[in-house]
Amino acid sequence: MKLLNLTINGRDITKAVSPGMTLLDFLRDELNLTGTKNGCDKGACGCCSVMIDGKPMLSCLMPALEAEGAVITTIEGIAKGNNLHPVQEAMIEMGAIQCGFCTPAMVINGVHMLAENNNPGNDEVKECISATVCRCTGYNSIEKAMHLAASKMREAARDGS
């Protein structure tokens, strides 16, 4: 076992982990943050996406010990209290959630895309959601939700300025 120090959803955490543990298992089994899903466990479905130092990455492909010193945001850290993020609101409003298994990853990737550019083109939205496999929706509603979230964020930026 080795000591791991990192920040998850604003909380500093120190815990002993075995070198064979993935970040995904650390989040789900050690911290009970089960919003991050294990779809394929081999990098091929995107469902385990978390934000690491501001960028979405796959937690199933990362040894937990590689996250030493990292600042991580999981789906549990996206809403501010009871206030959902515009991407979360838009996913609900567009009916883009069916079984919900891919939703945390779709949200994490969408939040990152819109933080970089709140006026994404169609290709950018497609690329953003391309690497998370959704078995239910057929992606159209998710695409629409990302555009709706973008317009909500542009509106908020205008109102704020």
């Binding site: 080795k2 064979g20 543990m21 993935t22 466990d41 010990l65």
Partner: peptide, 13 residues
Amino acid sequence: MTALDKEFDFARP
């Protein structure tokens, strides 16, 4: 349960 069942050591020089 860890996804990697075989134990190994880890170093980050």
